[in-house]
Amino acid sequence: MSTETVAARPLVDAAKIKAWLPKYGVYAAIVLLVVYNIFFTPYFATWSNLRIQLIQVAPIVIVALGMALVIGTEGIDLSVGSVMALAAAFIPLYLGYGVVAAILVALLAGVAVGLINGILVARVGLQPIVATLALFVGGRGLAVVISEGKLVDIRNQDFLYLGAGDLLGIPVLVWIAALLVLVVGFVVRRTVFGRRLLAIGGNRPAAELAGLPVKRVLITVYVVCAVLASIAGLLSVARIQSSDASSVGLLIELSAITAVVVGGTPLTGGKVRVLGTVAGALLMQLVIATMIKHNLQPSTTEMVQAVIILIAVYVARERKTR
């Protein structure tokens, strides 16, 4: 009896690590990277550096939140970058009517794109990757047309406060991102919508048979994702103090998907890890920052990112086959 337990011990530990890694691996990686930087990177542990990192990561976090919800339903949304561009294009056009009006129009653009995506996926029955590919391509084109291809400087101080202002010593941008994280986390855990979303992602035929309004939930998910993207878009405009539809949010869909996957949300749906997604975004941001501070080429950075993504996916897969 006793010999058996002794022999079994290392096996149990391996199993524990396997179960632990996909859940907490991201956090461990962040801690490792921070510790490394504190010792080896000059000027890393400074308030100004932390500020810059957080400001840079905020839009990615916001977009990734929506992406995590969509991925939770076994979908994907490629159009988020184009939604950001659309929001950016509308801001200078409507700032004349006031900050609130401009923001509302930007958000409405998000609602419209989300509705189209959602209807294509839920009602027409297109695969999410194809449905959102349409607006990934067309959305940015429309944004460039709306802005007439011009880069517009923004001088409205109230609006710029969103991107450059501070509240209690912390950038407004970061406050907004943090607030949205809390809201989305709450929605996933505590609302009817959140639970239905997970059930649909986990087993859609079962959700349908249980009488859930599957199509309505799916459409709502895509609308929420697009609205979050338009918030990220208008915040980006406020931060860079200019609107350029051809560059705002370029390739952000990939950063967002990376953050979600690295954060431990499976692409197979049925699970959404909100804090993991934030951590995923932070980790990728830290990796990039570390590389830059050590004067490594962007191409090297990209390869390191690729390795991290593969590790994250591999670890998740390990758990599934356990």
């Binding site: 639970r195 997970l198 986990g202 087993n203 959700a207 048979l209 249980a210 859930l212 049925g270 699970k271």
Partner: peptide, 24 residues
């Protein structure tokens, strides 16, 4: 397995799935 349970969700979530509006 294919049309009944949602395997990844808990016993609690699976039982409450169809009556969420009533318990919220």
């Amino acid at each position: 397995k294919a049309e009944g349970i949602v395997p990844g969700l808990s016993v609690r979530e699976n039982i409450a799935l169809a009556v969420l509006p009533r318990v919220s």
